[in-house]
Design a protein around this nucleic acid. Structure first.
Lengths: 300, 300
DNA sequence: TTGAAAGCGGTACCAA
DNA sequence: TTGGTACCGCTTTCAA
């Protein structure tokens, strides 16, 4: 009745509605949710909101959910599978309608529990070995290839500072880096390839090592924004005639300022968030729709 | 029964509990909440999570709530009173147990509605004209005084780039700036005092103006982190022999790197979040306790 | 100590 | 179309 699903006559409906607003009636969402088996709450599980990439993603999700009348429940997993699992259980207990999850590991066992307990799941950022989830990722390989090609146009000595190889994002970006080399007919120098943990400190240390080489690279491809900030810190500590060109896969946060120019991809973290929220709302509306695997690129 | 509040014998209790876990029983939080009139959900309303200050605050709140088994519902008000009001209503509808709010305006009318509808409110960051709320702020005036005094020790020509005067934070920080001048027996130069809107662009423009002066200041006190990033951008665009010393009220985010050294206060945004969450949990446990007005400073 | 029953505030269904 | 009633799953109370 109060949600308009009842076959009441216009007059009665109106009478009820004015009465309701005059009395300041507010629907109790808990009671409603209990009956309808839905809470109008969406969970978001990310490694850390304090990482500027996820901050933007979360903001995008929130903006999109707001329009649909959903509220966002924020969870930080710190990339730990136990925290992620615990949160998924809690979210299921709270009867959340769905979860947007940036998986801590490519490993899916626990995820199935979550789904079994009634959570609708949308995956973001990292792809996992399964096609039964809506997934939103960025065009890691293509974008990395394009960015690297830009560097190779100026020089053949290009370094790579990447994330942990167990993550799909780091793999894909490294593959793009190699693609560009292949196209350009250049053999990458293994001494210029660094694998770190996607951290500021990792980027800093890798860049330090590069700068200490007898022949530093002419350009550096850096696999994410946080590492790039470490790279910039390393650069700022070093005096040199010709600093290497820096290309960062992610854009730096809007408030980051730097003396050293950095070329970046326009990784659309905000749009990624909106898209993920969209997919989740669509699936909630129609659980039988086909699974989507959206790949957000630099276009537009 | 399932929450242990029932006068059951040990044996029965245990029997039920093992049965429950074997069957994979999970309590329905919606039903439980409906009955107990509590949802184990806490709302957080901030202007924008993407502002590094609030990002840290939110992270602090989340970590603290997690330990207590509460979930965090994130809302961005964009500093707009309408969005804030709408969210408070939504949160009340969802029967949230409480809200941690960074008020968009010093104006409280709507807040009372929220409380009337059953929300327990804790205020953060900006103080409002009322003593009937738990409040957590930073020691704006003292910290600003100390930071400014550091600059005055080196020179008498110190500029001030502050936030909007209608906010309590900007007022207090400016007062601290003046305090330091009084102690040092220095008259502040009004041409060096800028009021902006706490934005990166505002900081940028103010700094540009300062650099264009015939006699630029020897030091600049900047009222928040975001403006400081604008200030740094302005500096990076300008070549000069002796750049002014920059002091930022807030610390820059951990990943920020900069060529220009910046002295910062150690504004404990993370701790502010934890403290706010603590206060809220305490009040939820004992609604009649005295209102707290906590002032977090640089000590420790 | 135990079990049964009422009710939190809605929604959905059914007979009138 | 309408009003009445059962029921969502849990907590609390009350009688046995």
């Amino acid at each position: 009745m109060l949600n308009g699903n009842a076959p009441v006559s216009g007059a009665t409906l109106e009478r009820v509605q004015t009465a309701a607003s005059e009395l300041g009636y507010r629907r109790n969402a808990l009671a409603s949710g209990l009956r309808r088996r839905a809470s109008r709450l969406i969970g978001v599980v990310v490694p850390d909101v304090a990482n500027p990439f996820y901050t933007e993603v979360v903001r995008g999700i929130e903006d999109q959910l707001r329009g649909a009348g959903y509220l966002l429940v924020l969870c930080n997993s710190d990339g730990k599978i136990e925290k992620q699992t615990e949160y998924l259980r809690l979210l299921a207990d709270q009867q959340l309608d769905g979860v947007i999850l940036a998986p801590a590991t490519p490993d899916l066992d626990k995820l199935e529990d979550a789904v079994a307990s009634g959570l609708t799941v949308v995956l973001i950022d990292r792809r996992v070995a399964s096609t039964v989830y809506d997934t939103v990722t960025v065009k890691n390989r293509d974008d990395a290839r394009i960015l690297t090609a830009g560097l190779l146009a100026a020089s053949r000595r290009i370094a790579h500072i990447g994330g942990p190889h167990r993550t799909s994002t780091a793999q894909d970006r490294f593959a793009g880096f190699l693609d560009a080399h292949t196209s350009a007919g250049v053999d990458p120098d293994p001494r210029l390839i660094f694998e770190t943990d996607y951290s500021e400190q990792g980027g800093y240390e890798a860049m330090k090592s590069l700068l200490e080489l007898e022949q530093p690279p002419a350009g550096v491809f850096v696999g994410n924004n946080v590492m790039t900030l470490g790279v910039l810190r390393a650069l700022s500590e070093t005096e040199m005639a010709a600093a290497p060109k820096i290309v960062s896969f992610d854009p730096l946060p809007w408030w980051a300022s730097s003396v050293h120019p950095v070329t970046t991809g326009s990784q659309p973290s905000y749009r990624l968030g909106r898209t993920a929220a969209d997919l989740l709302l669509l699936r909630l509306a129609d659980p039988s729709r086909e699974y989507a695997d959206v790949n957000i690129g630099n276009e537009e």
